[in-house]
């Protein structure tokens, strides 16, 4: 029983990270109909920024803040400079470009900081069951989830962003600057990606720190339904728990395989994901 509780705590805490990354994927998918494979690149750039700032100032929170700001700016910049010129041509092109971007960023980070591991601090003490660091991970994703919900549901910006995503032309006729809304969506998503990087980065950062995490996050987003922010969070937590139980009871070596099994199972029962409303897409 104790082992079960341990695994549950572990699962929730790593699930929070998957949920954050999955949420950032869903926000971009909703805005641009694009699976953003560059998401771990934003997390990487942010986490390395935090690493550098913490080293220079010895303040964790300064580094944390810098990571979120850099994440937001990187997201906005990538949308404006890289994605916008190609997104209108073909969705597939844009997806491949995000994948290329990830490889480039991983390469550049390897050139700047080397491919060896760098120590990145936890926000709080990480020892013990459900340590303060775990609590922080779960609490921060809960706060993000509430903020995203309030932003989309109740704020004028959220209304504009939803209108721009659902019916760009109707949104323009109501005076919405659709391009600006896309940039805002990318900035918000990559800020959340930066948060995920700060949660998943410690104890050691390397250019490939987030590869496996991202595989689980994509899985979480897909099983939750790429169209549903709550599905992403639910999917993230479920993935965290499932991976934790599988590694604990069966063995860590089958965790990745288990992720695949989960996707196949969920998608054969609910092809659009757990929380997504099935609907036809216009081509």
């Amino acid at each position: 029983m104790e082992k079960f509780l341990d695994l549950t705590y572990n699962g929730l805490s790593s699930g929070a990270v998957y949920a954050a990354l999955a949420l950032s994927l869903v926000i971009i998918f909703q805005a641009t109909r694009l699976v953003n494979f560059a998401q771990p690149a934003f997390a990487l750039v942010s986490a390395y920024t935090a690493f550098a700032v913490i080293q220079a100032t010895d303040s964790y929170w300064l580094g944390f803040g810098a990571a979120l700001v850099v994440g937001a700016l990187a997201g906005a910049l990538v949308e404006r400079v890289v994605i916008r010129p190609i997104a209108s041509k073909s969705e597939l092109n844009a997806i491949i470009v995000t994948l290329g971007l990830l490889l480039v960023v991983q390469g550049v980070i390897g050139m700047v900081w080397g491919s060896r591991e760098h120590g990145l601090r936890y926000a709080f003490d990480y020892k013990g069951d459900f340590s303060p660091a775990d609590v922080f991970a779960v609490a921060s994703i809960a706060v993000v989830a509430v903020l995203v919900f309030v932003l989309y549901r109740f704020s004028p910006l959220g209304l504009r962003m939803r209108a721009a995503a659902f019916r760009p032309e109707a949104a323009r006729l109501s005076g919405v600057k659709v391009g600006l809304m896309l940039t805002a969506g990318w900035a918000i998503a990559s800020t959340i990606g930066a948060l995920a990087g700060m949660l998943a980065g410690p104890p050691f950062l390397s250019p490939h720190s987030f590869d496996l995490v991202f595989v689980f996050a994509i899985t979480a987003a897909v099983i939750g339904g790429l169209d549903s922010p709550f599905g992403a969070i639910l999917g993230g937590l479920l993935m965290g728990l499932a991976m934790s139980y599988v590694s604990g009871y069966v063995g860590p070596e089958v965790a990745t395989l288990a992720a695949l099994v989960v996707v196949v199972l969920v998608l054969s029962l609910r092809p659009d994901g757990i929380l997504s409303r099935p609907k036809a897409r216009k081509v």
Partner: peptide, 10 residues
């Protein structure tokens, strides 16, 4: 516009 352009999701 033609068809109204009502945003059905809102």
């Amino acid at each position: 516009p033609e068809g109204g352009g009502v945003i059905a999701e809102l």
